[in-house]
Amino acid sequence: MSKSILSILIVEDEKVLQDVYQIILSSKGYEVHTANNGLEGLKRLKALRPDMVLLDIFMPVMDGKEFMRKVDLDDYPNTKIVVYSNLLDSKIEAEMLGLGAHSFVLKSSLAPQDLVALVDQTLYN
């Protein structure tokens, strides 16, 4: 795949955060899509096949854990899933990494520049 513009899917139920992440990442030239919960996220993943997914854990309808259990990662070899949450719990972190997440980040630790750095690193390394 040789896409010139890399795409990111943000699965996040908090509208204020969706918006700000979209502003920040778009300004850095990424193609940003959003989904409000895990179920929507699965649908958009299938349709868009993005390069990266930013996945929240606590969401209504379907949460991040369920999303990870449902998704068949073999179908998306070029998609990296970064889980981020404001719940810092080593058990959940281990579980998500075990389910195939690329990395786990504490949301509140990310300033805008940190978010950019995280995405750059994930996609270009």
């Binding site: 908090e14 204020v16 955060l17 700000v20 992440y21 502003i23 920040i24 606590f58 949450s85 404001n86 719940l87 949301k107 509140s108 990310l110 300033a111 805008p112 520049q113 978010l115």
Partner: peptide, 16 residues
């Protein structure tokens, strides 16, 4: 978790 979420939004927007 709940306390962090709004503070995270504040952080992002001001940071922006």
């Amino acid at each position: 978790h709940q306390l962090r979420t709004p503070a995270t939004a504040v952080k992002q927007y001001i940071g922006l």
